[in-house]
Each structure stands twice: as C-alpha cells, then as structure tokens.
C-alpha cells in the first residue's frame, strides 16, 4: 500500500506544499505521483465563466429601488395602496417620458411612448434617445439598433440613425441600424429616407436597404408589423456576420470562429429556443458548428 493510500491527508498536504523536500521528491518520482502532479498542473487551466461585478451591482441598485416602492405599499391600508399604485404609475410614467434615453438588453424588448403619443417598440440591444422637455421644437430621435414606430396621425418627427435620417408623417415603420447597413420598412403611410446621396420615399408595404450610401435592396412585403415583435427575427439577404449579430441581440451567446465565412443569409429564427435558432441560421449555409448550452458558446468549425 502506498503512502497516499495509507495516510488520508498526505495528498492534501502534498498539494499544499507541506511535505519535506525528500518526501516530495520521492512521491513525485513514483508513477502515481507523476500523475497526481499532472492533475495539479492541469488544474491551472481551469477558469470560472467571466463575471461583470459592476453590471451586477447595477442590478442590485435597480432591485433596491423597486423594492422600496413595494415596501411602502405593503404598510398601507387597501385604499391607499390603490392611490400609491396610481402615484407610482404616474411617477414611473413621468420618468419614462422625461428620461431622454431608453435602452434594451439582450433578448429584451421595450415599449416607449413618445410625448405625442406615438408608440415605439424597441428591439433587443437597442438604444433610443430624444429630448423630452423640448419635444415641440426638437422632434428628433436618435436610434442605434432596431425599432418599430407607430406614429400618431398628424404627428411628425425624424429618426436619426447612423447612416441616414428617416422623416415620418402619420405612419408605422421599422428602422434597423446596427451596422453600416440601414434597413427601413414601411407598414402604413409614407416615410422619407435621406442619406448623403439617397433621398427616397417609401410607401406602405415597401422596404429599402442602404449600405454605404447606396441602395442595395428595395421591394415589397406583406407584413403588418415586423416579425421580431412577435418573437421571430426575419432576415433577408444579409451577411452571415449580420445574422450572427442578430442572434446575439436576442440570445446571450458567445460566438467563436476563426473566420466568419463570407456568405449571405435569408431566413427566420424564433426568440424562444436558442438551439433551434442557431440551427436555422447555420444549417441552410452548410456550416458545421457545435453549441455548448452550459457555457452558451457557439463554435463554428473551419
């Protein structure tokens, strides 16, 4: 029987450098000792999944603010609860409106009401900003990401995206501005898209795609709202990279690839099943891949 089988703390003390040099040398010279040493060395490659403590702390602060309201309510009799709820609602609403920026995280969507009662649905990982206090004079919105606008009749404003300006008049339309590409889809009414070189009107059931100041696609569609609002992302003739970006807007996954193949993708994927979504993007393009659902890592094979 060897020493590490006889003495039930031997390996623990060895791993913690507590043996004498002779004991140590003797043990590590044995075949088993060598194997144990390999285990210790190999354990240096182990890492926890990355952690963003700062972002996590923000969540704590957020839930503290939430629970403060809850606590105040629970101490009041029923009728004051109703009043408090209404007050809280008004306050929330007020802050929602007077706050000049709204953003969404991965897989999250938000509805924003503009001062003129127009409704904006913000898709995942998007950012929308506007000047609440001076809305009458500054009817402009900044958008980075994707949003669906349902504009109140008679209301007029402009959406500034990275690669163009979309002017509206009583209509509903979708703007996607995530990369150098700009996609504008009109559902009702009329919008005007302006970039350095392009100046085009888009009517209901039409869409326009612009990249680097040139129209790359224009045509008609039959939808009444963008499909992402119903939990499906639909992409038409985009690069694989853009498709993977959309995937990462909706799902918290990491994509690992030596090189993203230069392929075009047309298709749809759901927002509620990551494995199906990945399959629907990569299989049509004949790309071999593996997905680790625990680490949430998608690896594309070479």
């Amino acid at each position: 029987m060897s020493i590490w089988e006889e003495d039930d703390t031997f390996l623990g003390r060895w791993a913690n450098n507590e043996l004498t040099n002779e004991e140590r040398a003797e043990f590590e010279a044995s075949p088993e000792g060598r194997e144990f040493l390999d285990l210790l060395i190999a354990s240096k490659g182990l890492k926890l999944p990355p952690y963003d403590a700062k972002a996590h702390f923000e969540k704590v602060k957020y839930s503290l603010n939430q629970s403060k309201q809850g606590k105040a309510r629970s101490l009041q009799p029923v009728w004051t609860v109703a009043v408090a709820a209404v007050v809280a609602l008004i306050i929330t609403f007020y802050f929602l409106l007077s706050g000049t920026s709204v953003s969404t995280g991965i897989g999250e969507q938000k509805i924003v009401w503009l001062p003129d009662s127009s409704k904006v649905t913000l898709h995942s990982t998007s950012y929308l900003a506007y000047d609440e206090s001076d809305w009458q004079n500054h009817r402009e919105l900044e958008l980075d990401g994707e949003a669906f606008f349902e504009v109140k009749k008679g209301s007029r404003f402009e959406v500034n995206a990275e690669n163009g300006v979309i002017a509206v008049l009583g209509t509903s339309f979708n703007v996607k501005s995530r990369s150098s590409r700009l996609d504008v889809t009109c559902y009702t009414g009329l919008v005007n898209v302006k970039t350095n070189t392009v100046d085009q009107n888009i009517r209901a059931s039409e869409f326009l795609s612009i990249e680097e100041d040139a129209v790359i696609d224009k045509g008609t569609h039959t939808l009444s709202v963008p499909s992402w609002q119903n939990g499906i992302s639909t992409l038409k003739d985009v690069t694989l990279k853009e498709a993977l970006d959309e995937l990462q807007c909706v799902y918290k996954i990491k994509v690992v690839a030596k090189e993203v193949p230069d392929l075009k993708y047309t298709g749809s994927f759901p927002h509620d099943d990551v494995e199906v979504a990945i399959k629907l993007v990569l299989e049509p393009l004949d790309i071999e891949y593996s997905y680790d659902s625990n680490l949430q890592v998608l690896t594309l094979d070479d």
């Binding site: 390999d38 285990l39 060395i41 190999a42 354990s43 240096k44 490659g45 182990l46 890492k47 926890l48 999944p49 625990n294 680490l295």
Partner: peptide
C-alpha cells in the same frame, strides 16, 4: 451541473505543457 472553462493564456507555470491542456479539459 458544473463545468468550468479552460483558458491557457496566462499560465506562468513552465511545466504546463500541451498534454496538460487536454487533461485540464478532462478535469473541467
């Protein structure tokens, strides 16, 4: 279910060889 990640970039141990990478993955 616990499975750690492996990362071989910042290992200072000169004894850490290629074969340890594989073992590290088994260990995880």
């Amino acid at each position: 279910h616990l499975e750690l990640q492996t990362d071989f970039n910042n290992i200072e141990d000169p004894d850490f060889e290629l074969r340890h990478q594989e073992l590290s993955q088994q260990l995880s």
